[in-house]
Amino acid sequence: MKIRFFLAVIVFSIIYGVKAQNPIIKNLFTADPAPMVYNNTVYLYVGHDTAAVDAKTYQMPDWLVYSTTDMVHWKSHGSCLSTKDFKWASYAANAAQCIERNGKFYWYVSIIHKADENSKGGVAIGVAVADSPTGPFKDALGKALITNDMTTDMKHAWDDLDPTVFIDDNRQAYLFWGNGSCKWAKLKENMIELDGSIHTFKPQNFTEAPWVYKRKGLYYLVYAANFPETIEYCTAEKIEGPWIYRGLIQDRVSNSTTTHPGIIDYKGKTYFFYHNGVLPTGGNYRRSVCVDYLHYNADGTIQKIIQTTDGVKAVK
């Protein structure tokens, strides 16, 4: 009977496909997804919400890593980086993104800087490095790459949140980030030094969480807009701009005032990662990472994301 049962399961899976359920991580509260494709595997870097049910603020001590080769079954690699790995930092493992270059993996993080001789405090951006997508990672600089004192166009202490990094076809690397305004700078080939000045601009409705990529010669800047947050985007023919506003692509998510985009192409399909608060006892400070398909129109504009959460079948 057992053999017949397993054969039946295999036949059913082949005919109908095995489908994932959103949220894709259910045993922990996760946020700020940053997917990366490397060696035919998707690695997913996420923040870790540990706040109590009745908490009124974020508690995020570390970052977690997951991987998959089928977009259905996710392997946990545990906590691969912590606020404690940055001696100059104080707390708050905010949004981060990892990228590969020349066989090394650079993980850009936003984190609260200690008030010291190098910074008055506030959110800063650091970078960790490893020889593997799952680590072990170490602080690549021993200091922040960007401190709040280096950006003065916005007067609040958290305007240096949410780094995203992009390497163009000519191998020039760019770092984008920001809250209230979007900031960008070139990176040197070593990926741990800025190559020139910091630029700032304000895309329409921009709040935070930029995600930058290129498709068919067109640059895309996708970001969290307004508050409570939606996801909107701009495009440009040059990465330096001008950026043209293209509109809303994702409505507000369930049970969370924030969300965060992450976009990859994998095995012929495009996937859109985000977070909401739909898990039991979830909410603004206890969020959950989800993934759905992203589709383009013939002119390159993005179709509105169909959110499939609360146990609805999502990706195949």
Rank of each mutant, 00 (worst) to 15 (best):
D139A: 08
V127H: 04
V129M: 02
V291S: 00
Y293E: 14
I198V: 12
D169A: 09
L145H: 07
V46S: 09
L279Q: 12
I10S: 12
D149C: 02
H295D: 15
R246K: 14
K143M: 09
H77Q: 02
A185D: 07
T309K: 06
D251Q: 11
Y91V: 05
Y293D: 07
S110P: 07
M191H: 06
I192H: 02
A140P: 09
G17I: 08
Y245T: 04
L161S: 13
Y58E: 13
Y233Q: 06
H113M: 11
I146V: 13
K313E: 14
T83H: 15
T147F: 04
I14K: 06
I25L: 14
N255S: 11
D32I: 01
Y219L: 12
G103D: 04
T230M: 15
Y174K: 03
T258K: 08
P228F: 08
A185Q: 07
W184F: 11
D160A: 13
F137V: 04
K155V: 10
G17M: 10
K313D: 12
L248Q: 13
A89H: 01
N297A: 05
C80F: 12
G78K: 09
H73T: 14
K313Y: 10
I239Q: 04
K26T: 15
A8T: 14
W158P: 00
C290S: 15
L221W: 00
D32E: 02
P33T: 06
F273N: 01
I263W: 01
P35S: 02
I264C: 06
S79Y: 01
V127E: 07
S256K: 03
G262V: 05
T301H: 04
K19E: 13
N170A: 10
W88A: 11
Q59D: 14
K313V: 14
L194G: 11
Q21F: 13
